[in-house]
């Protein structure tokens, strides 16, 4: 069996093992584990867009919000109609419903990603960053004023479907898909487009296509992360997906090293655990992130966890 598929299978077995023994584990650690997993999905998917393809996006939380709301709509509104009000917890019907909700969340975010991606193709660098930033804010404001989805109060009483199994499986799938795409002849195009679009076209690659694919795949997984997040926190509000959430994901990706999947995973773990240890100074978290970002840019622009000798190109602005 090919190695990537084997790794995916092993990860899924690991996910199943963790969920089988989850009753014996401290719920606090399980919660941290879920937080880490969701951040891995977010960061690895943003890394495809910003790291590998060089399209700096500041709107990842917006796509996450779309995924969270779409998935919640499925499980909260459609769920009772489809599987009744009191399904067996963890039963087949419930799992199927949650799976459908995850797919719906991912698909909704991917469609939004496609819509943002296509007009953004002509923009690069800071212009694209501004458009995606604006998009994230538009999503948040729209949700805030959309009473059907709870308005500013958000949605409550979301069924607690997110288990360690789903989170580990989603993280493994994200790493698998992004890794397989990037590590192929086809995937060389992502980095080629990042390094030089005109040269990529001269090598017969379609830069627009690559950017749209990166955007669509990346936002699909952002949507899945949002869906997992909603069914974990059990309540979602538009304010939970604001600009600072996007910045958090960007910090993870830059900390791990643009285009370095393993580094980004490690950074996701680190930056999820860090606030747990810094609870007493939680209100200074954003100050800390900003300081971290500046320090990394000055001292280790290739990312904290990039151990290969060559330095990747500075992002072209």
């Amino acid at each position: 069996m090919p190695k990537p598929l084997l790794s995916l299978l092993l990860a899924l077995c690991g996910a199943w093992l963790v969920s089988a023994f989850s009753a014996h584990l401290d719920p606090y650690y399980l919660d941290v584990l879920i937080g880490v997993g969701i951040n891995i999905v977010l960061a690895v998917s943003l890394n495809l867009i910003a790291g590998h393809t060089g399209q700096f996006s500041l709107g990842h939380a917006g796509f996450m919000a779309i995924g969270a709301y779409a998935a919640t709509a499925v499980s909260l509104f459609l769920g009772p109609l489809l599987i009744g009000d009191f399904p067996t917890p963890g039963g087949l019907a419930e799992s199927t419903l949650f799976f459908a909700a995850l797919v719906a969340g991912g698909a909704a975010a991917a469609v939004a990603g496609l819509f943002v991606g296509i007009p953004s193709l002509r923009l690069r660098g800071d212009y694209l960053a501004l458009v995606t930033l604006g998009f994230g804010e538009i999503i948040r404001v729209l949700l805030q004023n959309f009473e059907l989805l709870g308005g500013a109060l958000g949605l409550n009483g979301i069924p607690p479907y997110t288990t360690p199994f789903w989170v580990i499986a989603a993280a493994a799938l994200t790493v698998f898909v992004v890794g397989c795409l990037v590590n192929s002849t086809y995937g060389l195009g992502f980095r080629a487009v990042r390094d030089d679009e005109i040269a990529a076209a001269a090598a017969g690659l379609n830069p627009s296509r690559y950017k749209v694919v990166a955007f669509t795949v990346g936002t699909f997984f952002a949507g899945i992360a949002g869906a997992l997040f909603g069914h974990f926190k059990l309540t979602i509000t538009p304010a939970g997906f604001d600009f600072t959430r996007s910045i958090e994901i960007v910090v993870i990706v830059i900390l791990g090293g643009l285009g370095n999947t393993l580094g980004v995973i490690l950074a996701a773990v680190l930056l999820t655990l860090l606030p747990e240890f810094l609870r007493p100074v939680a209100e200074y978290r954003l100050v800390l992130y900003a300081a971290l970002l500046i320090a990394i840019m000055l001292l280790r622009p290739q990312g904290l966890f990039n151990f290969s000798v060559r330095r990747p190109a500075a992002p072209r602005v």
Partner: peptide, 26 residues
């Protein structure tokens, strides 16, 4: 492509003549 290796440059240009689709990569 500054960050790509010499081999990867030639492979990237070989995309026009690749037989497997991106889905095969998955």
């Amino acid at each position: 492509f500054g960050s790509l290796s010499v081999l990867d440059h030639v492979r990237a240009a070989g995309n026009l003549h690749r037989t497997a689709s991106p889905l095969h990569a998955l």
